[in-house]
Design a protein around this nucleic acid. Structure first.
Lengths: 125, 125
DNA sequence: TTGATAGTTCAATAAACATTGAACATAGGG
DNA sequence: CCCTATGTTCAATGTTTATTGAACTATCAA
């Protein structure tokens, strides 16, 4: 297992890949909840999303989110903390992420969201 | 052949379908060029994009663009004129289309665009 | 060192997708 | 009325995708 997973540079972020990544309801829900949580902690663990799907399927989606440049994964012990690459996305495609997020917010009832009380991240390392 | 192809209502437009539609480089290029052309004519024929792919493949992509609510097709004789559903998209997902379009503009060199002089739409019916 | 926890990787599978060419439908011009 | 131009539909093909479970790796804590 590589110590730090691969992330594209800012310039390597491609628009079609980003849109494709966001077009999957599970991944869109992950990105949306990550954004929702930003005012609290800005990072969530993989396991915080375990209500959405199985571990291996989530790992697959997380890899796609990393590969397209939407999220960054920080390894801390046996946990991996995910955060949105807001600055990079804003620099690359100004306004895009916010437009997608507010669109997702309008249709939040159509997203497979983890219920709020399941997201109780407090302790960080 | 049905006289008028199927189009979703404004409320039926779904975010994941729209993003998925825009994630294909050919479809993104079609939408982008349609937007570019808006100040001139707002409509383009299918055959205006023949440089992008074969007829049947374009018909496939046009159908997806219609099905997800991004474009409307108007039948006029043997031609079909396509136009962006700007108002519907703006009402449904405010700011999204413009954010995608300006992102596409930043990366226009990475899109499979039809060269400008091939888009010489003048006569309309 | 043993066991539990957190994630990744791999192989297998079914569904969806993009692309092609051939056949078809429709309208307009000689 | 034929011929052509414009698009659609269908079947076939190969590719990519999402999902699953099992096996694996790494870290932490007792």
């Amino acid at each position: 297992m590589s110590r730090t997973p691969h992330h594209p540079t800012r310039e390597q972020i491609e628009l079609p890949m980003v849109l494709d990544c966001l077009s999957d309801p599970i991944r869109l829900a992950i990105v949306y909840q990550l954004a929702q949580q930003e005012r609290v902690s800005s990072e969530l663990r993989c396991s915080d999303f375990s209500a959405l799907s199985g571990k291996s399927n989530l790992a697959y989606h997380f890899a796609k989110l990393r590969d397209c440049g939407l999220m960054r994964t920080r390894v801390a012990g046996t946990n991996r903390f995910m955060r949105l690459r807001r600055e990079d996305l804003e620099a690359r495609f100004p306004g895009l992420l916010d437009a997608v997020l507010s669109s997702a917010a309008k249709d939040a009832d159509r997203l497979p969201l983890v219920s709020g009380c399941e997201l109780v991240e407090v302790d960080r390392k």
